[in-house]
């Protein structure tokens, strides 16, 4: 048999689970050879492979895998989330970026450039991350559905995926993402000008910032997962609690140690000691409250 069939079979079997590859390859070789032989024309091999069709599709049939990224059950929630993100969050973000630029440079050309840049950069992020999260949830739902039969206990808490919870979750996710963006922005853009004219960061960029940003990003992602899943489950709430702890504990710690602001910034601005105590306690209380509310909705 010539290499055309071999290439085709290889393209199919490399997409199915490893333990089935050898046997499916042997079987495909045999059936293709049988079919080609029965046709007996010079063109037969090409024709037969063309009829077998796209290797990706055939592999999906062998592996019993969906050919969709986001299936019909999750699609309405996905569409709703995209509508909120692209119709509300994106224009607001672009408007805010343009306004900041106008304040900074007072130059129409620069403001338009920033507007277009933000539109594409933020737009790409807004489309990519929810899509990735929904695709992962789609995959995990399929395997979970195979493992355990559905019971009424699996119903999402009252309101369901179409309830007002979606908008709230979108807002929480957008808020956490905005905080992440602000923290990273103040690190890269150094927006504060001291009296000496030097540009400095507002926050002290220490090793603690890593977990704080990761925790915030985790909380934002879990809100998106919650939209896809249609409600808080015990597992989701536990993951949210972990992300909340990763965010809030280091933040409260650096506030308590007065290591929150950059020393260069503090040389210019006086911060009352009470600010640290109040903010540290506030961060802990708000995060604990958020976690508690999610657990209550999960049970």
């Amino acid at each position: 048999m010539s290499t055309l069939t071999e290439r085709y079979v290889h393209e199919v079997v490399r997409r199915i689970p490893g333990d089935q590859r050898a046997e499916v390859a042997d079987e495909l070789h045999a059936t293709i050879a049988d079919t080609v032989e029965a046709r007996g024309t010079p063109q037969a091999e090409r024709d037969v492979l063309a009829e077998m069709g796209d290797p990706i599709r055939l592999a999906a049939r062998y592996a019993d895998r969906p050919l969709t990224l986001i299936g019909p059950e999750l699609y309405p929630a996905y569409l709703r989330l995209m509508a909120v993100l692209l119709a509300a969050v994106l224009p607001l973000t672009v408007a805010a970026a343009v306004a900041l630029d106008v304040l900074d440079h007072d130059d129409a050309g620069s403001a338009i450039g920033t507007g277009i840049g933000t539109l594409f950069a933020v737009g790409a992020q807004l489309v990519t991350w929810p899509t990735v999260v929904f695709a992962l949830v789609e995959r995990s739902r399929r395997s979970a559905a195979l493992a355990a039969p559905w019971t009424p206990d699996d119903l999402p808490p009252s309101g369901g995926p179409s309830g007002g919870g979606t908008a709230g979750a979108c807002a929480s996710a957008a808020w956490n993402a905005l905080l992440v963006a602000l923290i990273v922005w103040q690190h890269t853009a150094r927006p504060y000008r001291t009296d000496g004219g030097e540009r400095v960061e507002v926050l002290l960029w220490s090793g603690w910032m890593g977990p704080i940003v990761a925790g915030l990003a985790g909380m934002a992602l879990l809100e998106l997962v919650r939209v896809a899943a249609g409600g808080w489950s015990l597992r989701l709430a536990t993951a949210y609690a972990a992300a909340g702890a990763v965010f809030a504990l280091p933040l409260a710690w650096i506030l308590y140690r007065h290591e929150f602001f950059d020393p260069a910034f503090l040389a210019d601005v006086t911060v009352a000691p009470a600010f640290y105590t109040v903010t540290a306690l506030g961060v802990l209380a708000v995060t604990a409250g958020d976690v508690f509310r999610r657990f209550r909705r999960a049970v």
């Binding site: 079987e27 009829e51 055939l58 049939r61």
Partner: peptide, 12 residues
């Protein structure tokens, strides 16, 4: 029935 439907079906 086409081969690309039947062969995966047999395996399933």
């Amino acid at each position: 029935v086409d081969g690309n439907t039947l062969y995966p079906l047999l395996r399933r």
